[in-house]
Design a protein around this nucleic acid. Structure first.
Length: 283
DNA sequence: GTCCAGGAGAGGC
DNA sequence: GCCTCTCATGGA
């Protein structure tokens, strides 16, 4: 059992349940509320015994801090947000301890391919089913957890088996993407060397990956804070809170995307997460 | 039973 | 290029 200080507002429960990541399961250890899951292939328990402290089992402090973005200079990120934005200020005040999680790229890409037109609760269910059927079993704090299946495991499973996991039409995209990566035709390791636009184009080549999912992977898997995914919730809060009734109806999706990236600036994606969580919990 | 969900791709124009 | 339709599934 190790404990580290967060150095700023941090809310573990909000962070792990804000639609970025879909496999953490609530589990108390020694009276401390927390979650079990995997960091890559390592089983982990993470708990929050106090507002500014994180306690964990199964992995090193560096890995936990990197995953949870604990060392992130949140104040300087906020300093890049538009100063006169009352909506964003309201969203941040609603969940000041929310952070962006830095996920393994493949896991993030695969999970968001399965997220298309699905509610968060069902994405969680799909993730768990895929892990239990095709991932590797681990144990931590008396709980069973499963790693996210590798590209090779998903490719070998076949499209039909994926459909049986409740994926529906999403099975095609997940299977084809897994095959492309498992075969070496595509290498996610190349992402790091690319600039944002090139990285987005790289991700868009995969079947089942459009603008929104590519932006989710850039933001949650690659730490590209300028990426701004717009789903139905973001579309709703942006149109309703930032535009009048006439403009709101006329604005095309590409125009809204461009406006958001410009308005929220270089860390637009971080602002996006506060707004998304706020919209989903209060609308 | 109806509506909706962290959308994307194909086809028609 | 833009607009529309379709694609499965389960929770609310």
């Amino acid at each position: 059992m190790t404990e580290i200080a967060t150095g700023g507002p941090f809310d573990l429960a909000q962070t792990l349940d804000s639609g970025q990541v879909f496999h953490w399961q609530s589990h108390e250890v020694e009276g401390v509320a927390g979650f079990v899951g995997c960091l890559g292939d390592r089983p982990v328990w993470i708990g929050q015994p106090a507002p500014r402290a994180i306690r964990f089992l199964g992995v090193g402090a560096d890995a936990v801090a990197a995953y949870l973005g604990i060392a992130e200079p949140v104040a300087s990120l906020h300093a890049t947000f538009p100063a006169d934005d009352a909506v964003l200020a309201e969203a941040i005040a609603y969940c000041p301890g929310l952070r962006l999680v830095r996920q393994p790229v493949w896991e993030c890409l695969a999970t968001f391919i399965t997220s298309s037109l699905k509610q968060v609760a069902h994405i969680r269910q799909i993730s768990l089913t895929l892990r239990r059927r095709f991932g590797e079993r681990r144990e931590i704090a008396g709980c069973e957890v499963w790693t996210y299946p590798s590209p090779a495991a998903i490719a070998a499973a076949g499209e039909e088996a994926l459909r049986e996991c409740g994926l529906g039409y999403r099975a095609v995209g997940l299977h084809r993407t897994a095959e492309a990566i498992a075969s070496g035709e595509a290498d996610l390791g190349e992402l790091e060397a690319l600039d944002d636009a090139e990285a987005r184009a790289f991700l868009l080549r995969f079947h089942g990956v459009g603008e929104k999912i590519a932006n989710c992977v850039l933001l949650f898997g690659c730490g590209r804070y300028g990426a701004f995914p717009i789903d139905v919730w973001m579309d709703r809060i942006l149109r309703e809170r930032y535009f009048g009734p006439r403009k709101r109806r006329r604005l095309k999706p590409v125009e809204l995307q461009a406006w958001a990236e410009r308005h929220f600036g270089p860390n637009a994606g971080y602002a996006q997460q506060y707004l998304f969580h706020f919209a989903r919990k209060t609308f």
